[in-house]
Design a protein around this nucleic acid. Structure first.
Lengths: 148, 148
DNA sequence: CCATGATACGCAAGTAACTTGCGCAAGTCA
DNA sequence: TGACTTGCGCAAGTTACTTGCGTATCATGG
């Protein structure tokens, strides 16, 4: 019936090419611009929202007060480089052990978790500081919004 | 030299009494009101900011897009109840094992982490749903800002 | 091929949660 | 006690979304 959203399709394609691990709205806008589309921010918002609704993408809270989205896959955690802002995935079997421990000690029934590791990635630690295309340095985050 | 901020002192005292584990600005405002002080939000913001600057309190990113603050102590992680919103602390020795593993596999030098477990606390799971005074249910979070 | 109903999208205004600028008034110090 | 510093209230500004509204497109039945 309805036509499918051209923007949503482009976004999914961008994410599947996986030039990075997760995207903010700004990053999506930039990558869309690369492809010759320059949609209105609200259209990007709506496209991502509908993709989130269908379960195609998921929101990742990285603790910087912004929305980050990635294609849905098995749950995993994230490492984020404080220097270049690059985000990578991380298996998370360790955390699952916690569930039973936490339940035994406090009765808390754990249903989900979010683990974000921060530090310095190999490239930045090596002093090379080179960053894959279009990644760039994270802009200075808002005052108290970031870990400073 | 300068006089110390009455509001900052009240906030520290509220936090040290530990009626809860961490506070949003709104929650601080409510607890301050309990004590007969009703400062302007900007004053609370400034008080918390200065306490954060001195290291007396730290910001805890719980992934709901709001600022949560707690008194500084050894680093720990958090469990948050999806039903009543209560937040509790959790030791985090497990995560430290990760540091060496992550470094070995990817060269990422980890300097910090944030782990937030969510689920249902013992009280809510027991169907009693009773909540300590002044905690209340979490207001419905903004559209995409929460896990929905 | 054309009328019709349903969407997708752009534009602009609205919101939540801070943040900052300004200025007074209460403290502090010489 | 007068000059100077600093806490605090008020109001405006910012960031990052969100939502309302109207138009342009598209899918379909006639």
């Amino acid at each position: 019936m309805g036509r499918s959203s051209a923007i949503a399709e482009q976004i999914l394609e961008i994410m599947r090419r996986a030039a990075r691990h997760c995207w903010t709205f700004d990053e999506l806008q930039a990558d869309l611009a690369h492809r010759g589309v320059a949609p209105n921010p609200s259209s990007i918002f709506r496209a991502v929202s509908s993709l989130e609704q269908t379960g195609a993408v998921v929101r990742v809270p990285l603790g910087d007060g912004r929305g980050h989205y990635e294609v849905f896959s098995d749950h995993h955690d994230h490492v984020v480089c404080d220097t270049c802002g690059r985000v990578e995935a991380l298996g998370c079997s360790i955390v699952d052990d916690l569930a039973s421990r936490v339940r035994a000690s406090s009765g808390f029934v754990m249903s989900a978790h979010q683990l974000v590791l921060s530090g310095t990635c190999a490239a930045c630690a090596g002093g090379r500081g080179d960053i894959p295309e279009s990644v760039g340095h994270r802009p200075a985050a808002r005052n108290a919004r970031s870990a400073r």
